[in-house]
């Protein structure tokens, strides 16, 4: 194979006076920032939607279901393009102009990725709440809690702990999904990967390095949430007995 290996190119200077490893670090920073911000959006909105879909109110359930159906059945890249190129044309002209000119790119990307992921989180939050026995809600109501208070103090604290493993894999997925935001101009890790390949042609080295970066991001997220899982484990459930016996 006549591939020319050159691991030292990472320390070569680029056109803009930086080194190639600086590009990777800056990409890594953007990937982390966009992913974590989107995750925050997704967790908040996903929780609201998940709760809505378990309430006795039919229209709230319908609204939540419709949201999940729409956002799960359109590819992420198409959703991002909708937010960037279609929505600004459909809203009133002055808002559209503001979205195109003044609103930073990354805000739209974060919102787009967040809304996409929210649909997945809503599914899990709903599953978690539905896995609780009805008695938990009844007990709460019998104590004089309002419907909302049974969520706040009884059902959500249980539901989150039950679905934490599923939320963990969603939190790891968001790093991978954030790579798609390169298509709408975010200078994240995949963008830098593509750019470095165009400049240097050292495909194999950069592929290995960027793969490792994504691996580390997902792994760190996994460890953090595994720690949270261990700390918030519910005693008495099957998973709760692991290690404590």
């Amino acid at each position: 194979m006549n591939y020319h290996w050159d691991w030292m190119f990472f320390f070569q200077e680029t056109d803009d006076g930086l080194k190639y490893y600086d590009w990777i670090l800056s990409g890594l920073g953007w990937t982390t920032f966009v992913s974590l911000a989107s995750l925050a959006v997704a967790l908040i909105l996903g929780s609201v939607l998940g709760v809505m879909r378990t309430t006795p109110k039919r229209w709230l359930v319908g609204l939540g279901d419709a949201y999940v159906d729409v956002f799960r059945n359109v590819p992420l890249i198409v959703q991002l393009f909708m937010w960037f190129f279609v929505v600004p044309e459909l809203v009133p002209e002055n808002i559209g102009l503001w979205m195109k000119q003044d609103l930073p790119y990354f805000v739209i990307a974060i919102v787009g990725l967040g809304l996409y992921t929210a649909a997945r989180i809503a599914e899990q939050v709903k599953a978690g709440i539905n896995s609780l026995s009805r008695g938990q809600r009844f007990a709460g109501l019998a104590l004089g809690f309002t419907e909302w208070q049974t969520y706040r103090y009884v059902r959500l604290p249980m539901a989150y702990r039950i679905v934490l493993p599923a939320l963990t894999s969603e939190a790891m997925n968001i790093f991978k999904n954030s790579a798609v935001t390169y298509a709408v101009g975010i200078l994240e890790l995949y963008f830098q990967y593509k750019q470095i390949i165009e400049k240097t042609s050292q495909v194999l080295e950069i592929t290995i390095v960027v793969t490792l970066c994504y691996f580390v991001l997902a792994f760190v997220m996994n460890r953090i949430l595994a720690f949270v899982e261990a700390r918030t484990r519910v005693p008495g459930l099957i998973v709760g007995t692991k290690g404590s016996k």
Binding site: V180, V203, V210, T211, Y214, F215
Partner: peptide, 25 residues
């Protein structure tokens, strides 16, 4: 584990570039 931890877009680009190298080899 390798394929599940890498973004699909990255694999698409990487294979597109690496496949000809492998075939040539």
């Amino acid at each position: 584990n390798v394929f599940r931890s890498v973004p699909l877009v990255q694999v698409i680009l990487a294979f597109y570039l690496i496949l000809p190298l492998v075939l040539q080899m």
